[in-house]
Design a protein around this nucleic acid. Structure first.
Length: 583
RNA sequence: GAUUCCGUAGCUCAGCUGGUAGAGCAUAACACUUUUAAUGUUGGGGUCCUGGGUUCGAAUCCCAGCGGGAUCACCA
């Protein structure tokens, strides 16, 4: 009890005035016999969006409704009040009359509980009938009100005027991302992005399942990080005493499942790459990987056209999507350009026959920065990135990449030096990457050995050797086509967002700065009364060490000042005692 | 990692060449039975991000740190 009291006392200094008031309201609710956090089920029969959409057509269906949500605004006018209630579907105005919710003599529930003890952000349940106010707003006339959950921290209040202009918007990206729960409460329009994200993933899953392909899960903790070119996160397993990596890709495991005899396998999963963060990169991101046996990359292009169009229709009803200033049409077929042809088209330079020296010269002429570690494939990629990518607004397949860039794809069936690979570009960004998968185990071993040489040259993204994967290939993998789709970027495209943070509920952030550990016991041990410890903390002394470094006379004077300022009803220590703290 | 801008009340933000900390909303009190950015009157609320420095005096000027945004580099 004593400890509890101290904690309350400590909090009352650390909390804002409004937070203290809400805690007091909480106690008063309990004192009135109202549980601010009731345990029982509250049966909801109606939702805001449905009522505002359908009330005028079917007024008779809304004569007895029960809904639940948060109080978002209150307009109290004496013995009648208007409240905007927000539930998962939207907002609706509710109308409360004192004598309706307090039919007897005792008006405490309206005058005290509703008017004084409830706040913006509190969850309530209401039962009543839907009607039209004099000003024509669909509202719920409340007969019964139930407190469902008390909110102790004030929500930011976002106001909208008649023209729909937003005032005092909650827009600080740091607060929005760190406290997504607040963001989505006061900016509910952002919920649509995440609803659409779910629709996108579900429509793809439905599409794949309809083809008879199987959803699988493969290891996130991997002893060898393979399947992509990126720096990994490293961790350690205690029992096995071994280094493990968080996967940068799942490609090699899915191929093992094709070896195992499945015709089609796919996985939606998080990948982890220990690299930069910006508006298109988060350290963990979601990819979809799909592998289908007996298919090639040409077949895969048709599958992608069909699948992505299905996704666009699932979200928007039509295959046309707005992305920034562009209008993108996902109805296939999409334009197909070989990598060399695309460079020819946008630069008038034919790089198809160039050797490494000629490519270096071309890069220099185009003003593209290069370095010695770059091989032929990387140089071509640099030219492509700099001169072509941004032009690819409508969905475009770029096909037939140089072999040096792509150690896991099959050699082109007819063109020397190329592989059977395509990437799908939309709105200037890569959305998907697909191959006719390399299933020749000897060729695969050779290609991974070339990667080791690149690594030796200083390329820290070169792929690692995976002997077990090679062993699997040696048993035999059927001809297979595989594809990877960056789900976050697909969602960005489909929801017209320019930053990845907007399509992730909890984007990676630096850790919040924590308040220094307050060592209450240490203060008490040197003779400081417990009730004065929070005051010292408030004055900025978070450890005994910090306190002892201060001027004892000033501390004594300041204690008096704080006592007055905070209107504390605690005994002032005598000066001799304070001086003793510093011995 | 580089450049640049920012950090003031619960929220959104003012605060000039340095001189006692401001507004709107929120909050508290009173009034008000169909309002809707409700209204009217009256209050309370601040570690001006942190730490140094210059100065008689710093939210303001200088330095360092922390945190965030934007642009660029690497990457999907």
């Amino acid at each position: 009890m004593h400890l509890y009291k101290n904690r309350l006392h400590y909090m009352s200094i650390a909390l804002s005035e409004q937070e203290i008031l809400r805690r007091e309201s909480l106690q008063q609710l309990r004192a009135l016999g109202i549980d601010p956090y009731p345990a029982g089920e509250f049966i909801v029969t109606a939702w805001a969006h449905d009522i505002t959409e359908n009330f005028e057509r079917f007024p008779d269906t809304y004569k007895d409704v029960t809904l639940a949500g948060r109080i978002m605004t209150r307009r109290i006018m004496g013995n009648a009040s208007f409240v905007e209630l927000q539930d998962s579907t939207g907002r609706i105005q509710i109308y409360l009359k004192r004598d309706d919710i307090c039919p007897g003599e005792d008006k405490t529930f309206y005058n005290t509980v509703f008017k004084k003890l409830l706040d913006i952000g509190d969850y309530i349940g209401v039962k009543g009938h839907v009607f039209l106010t004099q000003t024509g707003e669909i509202s719920v006339h409340v007969q019964e009100l139930t407190v469902l959950s008390k909110s102790l921290k004030p929500l930011p209040v976002v106001k909208r005027d008649e023209e729909g202009n937003i005032h005092d918007a909650f827009t600080d990206p740091e607060m929005r991302y760190r406290q997504r729960y607040v963001d989505l409460t006061v900016n509910p329009a952002y919920k649509q992005i995440f609803i659409n994200r779910s629709k996108i993933i579900n429509s793809m899953r439905d599409y794949f399942n309809l083809q008879g392909w199987m959803e699988v899960e493969t290891p996130i903790l991997q002893p060898v990080h393979g399947g992509a070119a990126a720096r990994p996160f490293v961790t350690h397993h205690n029992t096995l005493d071994m280094q493990l990596f968080l996967r940068i890709a799942n490609e090699l495991y899915l191929k093992r499942l094709i070896v195992a005899g499945f015709d089609g396998v796919y996985e939606f999963g998080k990948m982890f790459r220990n690299e930069g963060m910006d508006r298109t990169h988060n350290p963990e991101f979601t990819s979809l990987e799909l592998y289908v046996a007996y298919k090639d990359y040409i077949w895969m292009m048709g599958m992608v056209e069909d699948c992505i169009e299905t996704v666009a229709r699932a979200v928007h009803g039509i295959p046309v999507v707005h992305a920034g200033a562009n209008e993108i049409n996902f109805a296939g077929p999409y334009e197909k350009l070989s990598m060399y042809d695309s460079i020819l088209k946008y630069t008038n330079i034919d790089v198809s026959a160039m050797d490494e020296a000629a490519l270096r010269k071309t890069c220099n002429e185009l003003g593209i920065e290069i370095n010695e570690t770059m091989g032929k494939g990387k140089l071509i990629d640099e030219i492509f990135s700099a001169k072509v990518e941004a032009n690819l607004i409508q969905p475009t397949f770029i096909t037939d990449y140089p072999i040096e860039m792509t150690p896991l794809a099959k050699k082109h069936r007819s063109k020397e030096g190329l592989v059977e690979r395509f990437e799908l570009f939309v709105n200037g960004k890569e959305i998907a990457n697909a191959y006719s998968e390399l299933n020749d185990p000897i060729d695969q071993r050779g290609r991974l050995e070339e990667q080791l040489i690149l690594a030796g040259r200083g390329d820290d993204e070169a792929m690692a050797m995976d002997d077990d994967f090679l062993r699997a290939l040696e048993y035999g993998m059927p001809p297979t086509s595989g594809i990877g789709i960056g789900i976050d970027r697909l969602v960005m495209l489909m929801t017209n967002q320019s930053t990845i943070q907007e399509v992730l509920f909890f984007p990676q952030m630096r850790p919040e700065k924590k308040a220094k550990m307050v060592t209450v016991d240490d203060f008490i041990n040197i003779g400081i009364p417990a009730e004065w410890v929070p005051v010292l903390n408030k004055m900025g002394f978070n450890s005994v060490h910090e306190l002892k470094a201060a001027n004892p006379n000033k501390v004594f004077n300041d204690l008096g000042g704080m006592r007055k300022k905070l209107k504390l009803d605690i005994t002032m220590p005598v000066k001799e005692d304070v001086m003793r703290w510093f011995e």
